[in-house]
């Protein structure tokens, strides 16, 4: 009871609202279906480059296997940011006042909120896991649990990130803006849909791809989250495997603290 009860109440409200939001659920289900069944299966045969009759694997996996971890990240990112954006609704429709005038400390309010968003995001991430059998990704229980751990950490960081953006937005034009201005750019530059072949040297990579794109991919923290999940599911890392956990932890802690700092001022 006490403070935990309050955090539970805020968490429960987030989860209930999200489960009652049909639009969000439809997105959560249709996104992985489109990416796996249409894009994944469609591009699958073209992923192995054939150069002068010699099949040369870019990465030793099929395209479906390759993008599967990235689709989990995509679904988590959409849902996290969408949950966080409800901060704007709470502010506009007055519910935030009800919470701010309560004896709950600010950090607990924010923590409950972000925990709620995290829960929903991980659930949406699991909707992708269900499709694993279509993608030839081996799925042992130990893999699932390890993945769930990283997914939770990532979702917490991304929800905090969403809250930070939401707090800085004065006029709200709808979720489409977030989707186009934040989520998709981050997603596409996270080495999610194309690999930076780790077999190539840096000089060779820069021959294959323009320098600015390589820079964007390497600077995007999500790259390392996608890479960490690839490590879990496929045992394949394009980057140093230690980077993923470090960067995801840093995102979770850093973004939460920044969100809290914003929220205290509000």
């Amino acid at each position: 009871m006490g403070l935990l009860g309050g955090i539970y109440a805020i968490w429960l409200r987030e989860v209930k609202r999200a489960l009652r939001d049909r639009g969000q659920l439809i997105g959560g289900v249709s996104r992985p279906l489109l990416w796996v069944l249409i894009m994944g299966i469609g591009l699958n045969p073209y992923f192995r480059g054939e150069v002068f009759g010699e099949v040369r694997f870019v990465v030793p996996y099929t395209y479906l296997q390759f993008i599967f971890p990235a689709i989990i990240v995509l679904n988590i990112m959409y849902t996290s940011v969408q949950s966080a954006v409800s901060v704007i609704w709470d502010r506009e429709f007055g519910f935030l006042r009800e919470v701010l005038v309560s004896p709950m400390p600010r950090w607990a309010i924010l923590f409950g909120k972000i925990l709620g968003g995290t829960t929903i995001a991980v659930m949406h991430g699991c909707l992708v896991l269900v499709l694993a059998r279509f993608t030839d990704v081996p799925m042992a229980w130990s893999t699932v649990f390890e993945a769930l751990g990283w997914m939770t950490l990532l979702a917490f960081g991304l929800t905090s990130f969403g809250v930070i953006i939401a707090n800085r937005i004065r006029s709200f034009e709808g979720f489409g803006v977030f989707s186009n201005a934040v989520i998709l750019p981050l997603y596409f530059t996270s080495s999610s849909v194309f690999p930076l072949d780790p077999a190539l040297t840096r000089a060779q990579t820069l021959v294959v791809y323009p320098e600015w794109l390589v820079f964007l991919v390497e600077a995007n923290p999500l790259t390392y989250a996608v890479d960490a999940l690839r490590g879990v599911f496929l045992n394949f890392n394009q980057f140093d495997p230690a980077l993923g956990p470090i960067i995801m932890t840093a995102m979770a802690v850093g973004f939460f603290l920044l969100a809290l700092w914003d929220f205290r001022k509000a």
Binding site: M1, G2, L3, G5, G6, Y8, A9, I10, L12, R13, K16, R17, R20, D21, F93, G94, F95, L96, R97, E98, V99, V101, S102, P103, M104
Partner: peptide, 28 residues
């Protein structure tokens, strides 16, 4: 203190009971 603000501050996607239960939990 109990407060009724000028602008409505209920969560209209929750039921009456859920709104009150939320409040009760938050106020311990």
């Amino acid at each position: 203190i109990g407060v009724v603000f000028q602008e409505p501050s209920l969560d209209d996607r929750l039921t009456a009971y859920e709104n009150l239960n939320f409040h009760g939990l938050v106020y311990q």
